[in-house]
Design a protein around this nucleic acid. Structure first.
Lengths: 152, 152
DNA sequence: AATTCACTTTAGAATCATTCTAACCCAATT
DNA sequence: AATTGGGTTAGAATGATTCTAAAGTGAATT
């Protein structure tokens, strides 16, 4: 058996031990399977990351995993539905999945298709309009689009 | 079909007269063609709008225009490149084009795939982080994602 | 261990928005 | 009117994502 499970839900735990990842999955209501464990290891084994489905697929293959494209998509969607990942929409071409699920914002460098986290406390949204009647705020996203500076 | 009055006014308001639209196009560096004029009429003839390519296609067909899908895409992209439209990225499935090109923000109701403008002055972003070295801020976007309120 | 059953994974097909191709069309110029 | 170079087009191509239906696997049960 395993010792006391850590009930840290929305936290950027650097889970890298297999049992921690397994715990993370089952706590999220997902059955612990090899594919999910392996992808969870890639996703959550390092610090915060932003991945596209294809990039994760490549990474899995490079790591010697035998995982189909469909499983990568399924898994990302399930992790997202389970609240383990956040989906970020900044580029029309593809979706990014962010392992940081705490409230925070993003820089986006379109030329490099690169996302950079901004901690929530680094942005101060002092005033927001009232929501239209019948609607509630789900989430406030601030996206700062960046360009490379012209050379001096 | 389109008789062409040769009046060239320099107006940049809510253009809805054919010559105003033509002027808008040529000022933007675009050749004035029937397809562009017709789509410009649909896009800019009414107040601010948010359209998808497909919705605009439908609208054009409903208005009796003979316009191909490719032309709708080409035109939207050209208008965007020319600064006449802004592209809004909130849904992975499709791109929105916004006829309001002034700085402003958006509510987005995912369940209804609906965008609602928020005037710039209704949001106060009091503090922003410094951009990473070598990058400049192109644009700051605030997206407020809404859910339908639960029924009372 | 074997059986069962529901959930997973898979390869490949299907879908959908968007872009590309290559041929034809038309606006501006001569 | 002829030329020319961009514009428009239908249809093919692309690329991300989803779907299908078949085969595999985890967890519980025998």
């Amino acid at each position: 058996m395993i010792g006391t499970p850590r009930m840290r839900l929305s936290e950027k735990t650097k889970a890298h031990r297999a049992d921690e990842l397994a715990d993370k999955l089952s706590t999220a209501g997902l059955r612990v399977t090899q594919a999910r464990l392996a992808l969870a290891h890639l996703l959550f084994g390092q610090g915060d990351r932003h991945v596209t489905a294809d990039a994760l697929r490549e990474e899995a293959l490079a790591a010697g995993l035998k995982i189909s494209q469909a499983t990568v998509y399924n898994t990302l969607n399930q992790f997202h539905a389970a609240g383990l990942l956040r989906q970020v929409q900044v580029d029309q071409a593809r979706s990014y999945f962010d392992t940081n699920i705490d409230a925070h914002h993003h820089f986006y460098v379109e030329e490099e298709a690169r996302l950079i986290d901004i901690a929530a406390q680094e942005v101060d949204v002092a005033r927001l309009p009232d929501s239209p009647k019948g609607y509630d705020v789900d989430r406030v996203e601030v996206i700062i689009r960046l360009d490379k500076s012209p050379k001096a």
